[in-house]
């Protein structure tokens, strides 16, 4: 649960901050949830899974056929389709 608060953040402090949506974060980079533009049931489901404001999310792998992408969030791995991930605003430091 505590992995986001450990070392890497400090060394990347000087890198430019990119604001985008979760579906555009490159695999392996750590992003932070800044806003959720989703409504209703999906919003609740994503919140319950840990996509809360300020949460750290990392895209870890893509499906062989390209679409759902698995994200590491709050110590769990959750797969989202591109359309859903596009509703999650994030910021990450470019490497």
């Amino acid at each position: 649960m505590s992995q986001p608060s450990s070392a890497p953040a400090a060394s990347h402090q000087d890198r430019p901050q990119v604001r985008t949506t979760l579906d555009r974060v490159p695999l392996g980079l750590l992003a932070r949830v800044t806003d959720l533009s989703l409504e209703g049931l999906l919003r609740r489901r994503l919140l319950d899974l840990g996509f809360v404001l300020g949460a750290h999310v990392r895209p870890v792998r893509r499906s062989p056929l390209g679409d759902p992408t698995a994200y590491e969030v709050m110590g769990a791995v959750v797969a989202l389709r591109r359309t859903e991930a596009a509703g999650i605003g994030v910021s990450y430091r470019d490497s």
Binding site: V77, V78, A79, L80
Partner: peptide
């Protein structure tokens, strides 16, 4: 299409 949220335990 509805939402797709799948946990990979």
């Amino acid at each position: 299409p509805s939402v797709f949220v799948l946990e990979l335990p």
